[in-house]
Write a protein that binds this DNA or RNA. Sequence first.
DNA 1: CGACATGTTGAACCTCATCAACCGACGTGG
DNA 2: CCACGTCGGTTGATGAGGTTCAACATGTCG
Lengths: 247, 247
Amino acid sequence: MNRSSQGIGHVFRCQHCAVRNLAVCGAMSDQQLRRLNEIAHLRKYAVGQTIMSHEEPVTFFANIISGAIKLTKTTADGRQQIVGLLFPPDFLGRAFRRNNPYFAEAASDVELCIFPNEAFERLVEAYPELKQRLFERTLDELDAARDWMLLLGRKTAAEKVASFLLLLARRSLITGCSSGGDAVGIEFNLSIKRADMADYLGLTVETVSRQLTRLKIAGIVKINGTRRIKVPVIRALADAAGQEMSD
Amino acid sequence: MNRSSQGIGHVFRCQHCAVRNLAVCGAMSDQQLRRLNEIAHLRKYAVGQTIMSHEEPVTFFANIISGAIKLTKTTADGRQQIVGLLFPPDFLGRAFRRNNPYFAEAASDVELCIFPNEAFERLVEAYPELKQRLFERTLDELDAARDWMLLLGRKTAAEKVASFLLLLARRSLITGCSSGGDAVGIEFNLSIKRADMADYLGLTVETVSRQLTRLKIAGIVKINGTRRIKVPVIRALADAAGQEMSD
DNA sequence: CGACATGTTGAACCTCATCAACCGACGTGG
DNA sequence: CCACGTCGGTTGATGAGGTTCAACATGTCG
């Protein structure tokens, strides 16, 4: 089965939601949360599945419960760029926009908390706090996009890869409870494949792979298998992300 | 004199403002416009002047009346990327954000319609339409930033320069009353210098210059002096930019 | 185990950055 | 008025960083 869908209701309560206080729902009262709960349902997508497409109308908004979603844009001749990479507790959807210029695909297996269009938009109009929260999310996304513009336009391949790992490392500190301070270092999973990293960084898979081994050889990261990353000293990674690496 | 400042009041009325119905003010009633008018004043900046900096708190919002403003980010070792290029009737400022991670500089001589922080934010809270308008602006900026990510990450130098000219060409159709249909072609001024184009496109000035002459030789654009551009056939420029017209 | 996707490594090539010289426009001071 | 420096822009020569193409290695899942 590729896609599963289930109501939330008794099965799932926002109060127990893993991403509740980080997500857009964070600002809402219990009363409002109950309303939100009523219109929501869970849905799973397998890696590679299309979640939204610019070719068909978007019918829902969603909170990401687990997994990663990539938003992409593509040139006429097929070159692809990831313009947004969404992790829990990010929000998927464009309030106040009928069109959707992006293509959203599951970059890993994904669980979403789905809100159907009309019902959600009624809630947005009813609850200014929710609207405000969406606004702030959009501002965050804008800041992130502009950070990435600096990376895409001006950073070297080595800096790009380091920056991406740094992004994941920092993110893992926020989302998962941190396993300790700087002493232990940070460990996390690369939830996406090399090809996606390349599309996010404006590189090729080969270059990504080479830069990863360079970082490994330099001792800045340890790589277990292909997906498990450990960063002993965040500071070293941050240096590699910001300026030219000394060979 | 580097900076001039004057009240608006009798001198300047929103009703006569060149950018009024395109700007954020467009959604507002006469009554609301009067309130906005009361808190606004004009200010001019010469090319090269700093308008906002991440080093000092931002004290105002502004509509751009004329000229161009570049928002930039810079790496530790001085590489610069323009992450936003603002023309009339764009809006400058970050509602609901105390910090300002960008550096805003006049890319040409600029006229701004300034709204002091507190007064403007009171109006935003009082007039939901205004807040809504700001939200939509932010969504537009996000879309623009993501378009640019595709350009920065995946387009060739030739496509980048063509895309930029196309952007200006389309913009000139919206802002200035178009001088005619496709028959005549489009003519406009490059309001910024080559170095700024390079910083916007993630290139060097030399590459920008070379690609411009390539476009000139190919007959896709005519260049008069260094700043005056004429595009006989938009379609040809769009092809060179590597995108379909419809978008 | 076999098959297919994912990831790594090597070698040749090419686009674009770098360095340098030059041009024209402009403003300033002698 | 011209000499001079500065700034913006163009053009040329050269080389490095990253892509491309190809082969191989490692997973991963039936």
